[in-house]
Design a protein around this nucleic acid. Sequence first.
RNA 1: GUCCCUAUCGUCUAGCCUGGCCUAGGACGUUACCCUUUCACGGUAAAGACACGGGUUCGAAUCCCGUUGGGGACACCA
Length: 495
Amino acid sequence: MSEVRTRFAPSPTGFQHLGGFRTAFFAWLLAKHHGGSFVLRIEDTDQSRTVKGAVRFILEELQWFGITPDEGPSFSELEAIGEAWDGAPQLAGDSGPYVQSLRTARYREVADALIAKGDAYRCDCTPEMLERERNEQMARKELPGYSGYCRTREVSKDTKHVIRFKMPQKRSLSFIDGVRGRVAWDSVSLRDPVLMKSDGLPTYHLASIVDDHDMRISHVLRGVEWLPSTPLHLLLYEALGWEVPVLAHLPVINGADGKKLSKRSGAATSREARQQGFLAEAVLNFVSLIGWAPGEGRDQEIFSREELIRDFSLSGINQASGVFDLKKMEWMNGLYVRSIEQADFIERAKPFLKDADMQIEKEAFATIAPHVQERVKLLTEVAPMVEFLTDRPLERDITAMFKKNMDRETALRIVERSFELLKDLKDFSVEVIEQTLRGVVSEIGVKVGPAFVVLRIAVTGKTITPPLFESFAVLGQERVLARLVETAEILRTQG
RNA sequence: GUCCCUAUCGUCUAGCCUGGCCUAGGACGUUACCCUUUCACGGUAAAGACACGGGUUCGAAUCCCGUUGGGGACACCA
């Protein structure tokens, strides 16, 4: 078997959502599984929809996921389309350029060859004419579509024109889809599709086929939305005399509302996911599991990238579309957060503290970090959990202290007694603090739970925090005492 | 309208190709309970699905046909 070569061929028309990146993952996984190559190609043939910065976005997100294409646009190619920046990945390859707007001469050449063979023709019908034709067809309740008016005309090269493919009528066609098996059409009803637009750029159909051939792509993975135009592609390969690669049409990923993935779906793009505190490896793992499963009765869900590469195959891909479940991705992220090294966790949490504008001593954060790491699903949850370590004034939810077993008077006694005993401690260690506070609780004769809620709120301001004694120790005797005093004051004066 | 794809718990899925081991398994979520200084973690348990109708067969989630639901395509967009 010759080399497996796959590609990710996004159009730079804006943000790429996670469904798009999943297509990239699958293509990359398939290539790596077979020890082949993964190619990145930019499909910017629609200049009106091309968005500045979109190529950079794609490159940066792939970097975040740790996926480096084996071949892709070089720095000078990026420069040529105004998308280069310092830190852009250095990609190369011998099948370039990997940007379609830089390959127009080749498409022209192929289109001309098709005309010479009689499989394509020039058409100078204006959009207005086509529009009128369409309206008339609709009025007659006919299927709208190009009539083929220019098929037999000799349109000059010099007039503004498009190049259309001469679609054979009544052809039955079939192929073996990489994930769906045999797909067949009794008769293909497409009407002479445009191959080259009047602006000199190719349409997707021509460009992708030429490039996949030139770049020796062995497996084309793309969304199911392309399935209906596959007959055209098959015919194009036939007319060109080129071998058809394996075509595999992937199911789509929908949002929780059952509609296409969008901003409302939660973390629609990888960038949003990152900003919300997701880890790249968790997102990669999770997204790979929408539409793919190891099969063979296995129920494994946590896959390292090596395991993914080892186990991935087209046969494990599902045919039905899936729904993106943010909750499950959060659960999985929590698993990953807990599994990384402590030092790594601290490193990754840093930017989020910065975003929250929090200054915390390195030492203190390092001490509390392992306790925080166990308790968060998302990196964005770190900051609120360690906010008590900053010098910001606490906003205490005093009323949360009072429950069936706790009233204001008792709370005050706990706070005052804790202050008295903690004040004299020479050793402010976790063990000693625990011993002391448990002493307070039994002395006053209240339940441990509600009593510690009082102290927790008194010193951290919150009901959800890292473990109490550890929090006290990290904060330090001085600040703990000060906060107890503040709380006692509040309990005495308010209400 | 025509064509194509698709259908197992709320969600992701295993099982389907090669019918019986399926009383349909796992995970997220949900609800209890246990652990416990809060919150998480961990543990135990519960509720929860083969879209429907016909066949074929001793036997169908699995094979066939139809219906219905969902999605997509029918552009000088990809």
